[in-house]
Design a protein around this nucleic acid. Structure first.
Lengths: 262, 262
DNA sequence: CAGTGGTCTAGACCACGTG
DNA sequence: ACGTGGTCTAGACCACTGA
């Protein structure tokens, strides 16, 4: 016990405490939580702070609540975070797997129309392009094709790409990835995909196109990741109030509009 | 103008107003928003209410904010909601498409192990099983295989499944779908999939397995939806603070644990 | 340095649900 | 009828950003 987050905000500490209570069976799946006023007294904070903590758990799909009734426990908390969705290395390590990567290509090149659109740069501006095959243990599970804006790419080029997590290294140098939008669809492996993953062309792949921005909203990278369909899946939570996820026609918005459809 | 949501909470009205302002170009992508205190004065509410509205936009990926600096506009707001992710009909209509569906099978049967696990019922309990092919215009785009708990399934059986949105009809009868967890992966069309969608076996499909619960956390249905990979994709937003989405090893959790992994 | 968002408090009223 | 969560107010202090 102890040594935990004395400096972190109170509402986060409370969310952590509630998560632990649920995981350890103090509050079981399907049962009701104490009222917000009771929790406020228990943690010696105002009700507003308790509500802030509960909002976090609600967004995680751990609890649900309605107007006149007490909150209920929906499910065990999942251990995941933003960095684990962004970084293959962080994710793999959190699962106890040994992440590995083989660099296929690292090049400085010039932005084409797609790069320009997704990174908010001008066509012809320099960007960095990186292709890696990522593995769990010895088995390849995905191909990662990432395009970085020049300032970030220069840092990437100085990292040990075979061993390290790019995002951990960049974070050390003050490059913060704060927000991402992901497009998820399915496609058949083309010849290059197939060769890199060691499968037949035509094998179904899960495609994730991602665009990541800094806290200021500045695009930092975009990536086209392709997973073996039976190796990995994505999980998302989705409640009546929230709009974190959506479904769109077609695959990936290419030409104009940043937001697809239209 | 006017006629809009006089009864809805103030923070929602403010979020709507800000979304409109961004869409209409009052606040452009990449620029700063007014300070929270200024917005509070403009809308004549307290700062807390403004922050509640901004939290919504943040979760949607429309704006971002950090400690000492003003919020910035990340992207144009997307028109989507929970019901549009859940209901094929609502989604298609919102896009101006004409949704259609062909019922392949509707049967009352008895829960197998997977049903029992996902719906919190006992193996052998009655459930309702529905298979539909969904189309946009004349083209089939997905197969929907849904299993309902008995109480909901009985209502489903009384609905015009070819024309109506199940979820709209159920909502009218007081069955509220409040929370969903989705698992997204890729797989190859099997013979049945291929025949129903009119494609070759082996064609890549985007698979979404969903489990939906009531506001009280009671499971109402689970579904295995398979989309033509090039017809539809999913979009998700994901910020440093949030945990709405995650990546997991393997495809769909089958046996135990509700939360996959472990 | 002044201004900002992040956090927190201590109240209040309402619509809703359950007994 | 009562307790509940949802909403809202009017303050306050802090850590951080940016000129």
């Amino acid at each position: 016990m102890s040594a935990l987050a004395t400096g972190s905000p109170r509402h986060r500490q409370i969310a952590d405490a509630l998560r632990r209570s649920i995981r350890s069976g103090v509050y079981e799946r399907g049962t009701q939580l104490p009222s917000e006023r009771e929790l406020a007294e228990e943690f010696d904070v105002s009700r507003g702070t308790v509500r802030q903590a509960l909002a976090t758990l609600r967004a995680e799909g751990v609890v649900a609540s309605r107007k006149g009734a007490r909150g209920v426990v929906l499910a065990e908390p999942r251990a995941q975070s933003f960095s684990e969705l962004l970084s293959f290395s962080a994710w793999a390590r959190a699962l106890g797997e040994r992440p590995a990567g083989r660099v296929v290509e690292l090049a400085r090149r010039y932005a084409d129309a797609a790069d320009a659109h997704r990174l908010d740069v001008t066509e012809g501006d320099p960007v960095f392009f990186l292709v890696r095959v990522r593995m769990l243990g010895d088995a390849p599970v995905m191909i990662e094709r990432t395009t970085f804006v020049e300032s970030v790419g220069r840092l990437v080029a100085s990292v040990d790409l075979e061993a390290d997590s790019i995002y951990a290294r960049l974070a050390e140098r003050g490059v913060v990835f704060a927000h991402a939008r992901h497009y998820v669809s399915a496609l058949a492996a083309d010849n290059e995909d197939a060769a890199l993953l060691g499968v037949e062309p035509g094998t179904p792949l899960l495609r994730q196109v991602r665009r990541t921005t800094s806290p200021e909203g500045m695009p930092l990278e975009w990536a086209d990741d392709r997973y073996l369909g039976d190796a990995v899946s994505f999980v998302l939570e989705n409640s009546s109030g929230s709009r974190h996820a959506a479904r769109v026609i077609g695959t990936i918005p290419e030409p104009r509009g940043d937001g697809a459809l239209r």
